[in-house]
């Protein structure tokens, strides 16, 4: 009887793993197809960016460079506007992120303290802005009335605190800093400022890393709309606005193409330039992201706990 059962369960196991093995093969195939779909456009762009203008305009590029050439990149590197945009984006991202992270941390710590009177109300006041806002024009009017239009401040000050980022930071403080620790610091005679500086900030390093990435990539480096409405002066344009002019509006300095007389070749270079520009614009984030990916994932996970 006992041997019978184990025999049966063995059969069961064999059947089960056969079903599972087919499932796992299907699963691997599915994930491979998804991966290929994600990669295909990226590979095409990179391949085209290293091809010759003639091959690009003739539509001969698929997934490998045709008539290898660096002409697109050379032309980009001579384009002052692109570099100016790069420098501006770096500036906005650097100072903007410092401002965002600072504001978020000093808001989140008090709001994470259970003994703070009014914390629910104030937290709600922040969260509410996620659900309702004054709208585009009224916000524009505030920025205008503060005299920030067409200044670098317009790219930094209005971004302030992202409600989602504030939430994950509050959650982080609540779950990693035990109230006893704060109480202990108080008993040792530390003021709240002192506790914040000497106890909280050193413990906040992981969340600061997460916030830095979220703000730098999502709020600053990759956005264009703020710049579109608040900036008029070309000298202040961040990279994304320059990219929009070239990639979307198809406006390229004629001087960039002046050496080329043949109309077709000129058209080819115009397109080639775009491919190279896409690569150049995406490379900084693409290089950094594999190393910091886990921080993003961590941030999303703290967010999902909420």
């Amino acid at each position: 009887m006992a041997s019978m059962t184990s025999y049966e369960s063995n059969i069961n196991k064999v059947n089960e793993s056969a079903v599972d093995r087919i499932f796992m093969m299907g699963n691997t195939a599915f994930l491979s197809i998804i991966t290929i779909i994600i990669l295909l456009p990226l590979i095409f762009i990179v391949a085209a960016s290293f091809s010759s203008a003639e091959a690009v305009i003739a539509g001969r590029v698929t997934l490998w460079p045709v008539d290898f050439s660096l002409l697109g990149y050379e032309t980009i590197f001579e384009h002052k506007k692109v570099w100016n945009g790069f420098a501006n984006s770096l500036f906005y991202t650097f100072f903007g992120t410092i401002f965002n992270v600072f504001m978020t941390i000093i808001a989140a710590y008090p709001l994470s303290r259970q003994d703070l009177i009014g914390r629910r109300f104030i937290t709600f006041a922040f969260i509410f802005t996620m659900m309702f806002s004054g709208g585009l024009i009224p916000t524009y009017m505030v920025v205008r009335d503060l005299g920030l239009l067409n200044t670098r401040w317009a790219m930094i000050l209005p971004t302030g605190i992202g409600p989602f980022n504030l939430l994950i930071t509050i959650t982080f403080f609540r779950s990693t800093i035990p109230p006893e620790l704060i109480e202990a610091a108080r008993i040792d005679g530390a003021s709240d400022f002192r506790t914040f500086r000497s106890v909280i900030l050193p413990l906040a390093r992981p969340i600061i890393a997460v916030l830095t990435l979220f703000y730098a990539v999502n709020t600053h480096w990759n956005t264009y709309f703020q710049a579109l409405i608040y900036l008029k002066d070309q000298e202040l344009f961040p990279l994304q606005i320059v990219l929009r002019e070239i990639l979307i509006q198809n406006s390229i300095d004629a001087s960039m193409l002046i050496d080329i007389e043949d109309l077709v070749a000129r058209e080819g270079l115009r397109e080639l330039l775009k491919y190279s520009l896409i690569v150049v614009a995406s490379v900084p984030v693409m290089i950094i992201y594999p190393f910091v990916q886990r921080h993003f994932v961590k941030g999303m996970m703290i967010g999902s706990v909420k």
Partner: peptide, 9 residues
């Protein structure tokens, strides 16, 4: 991590 402008481009 690719920006909207680049995606549309």
């Amino acid at each position: 991590f690719i920006s909207t402008v680049v995606i549309v481009g």
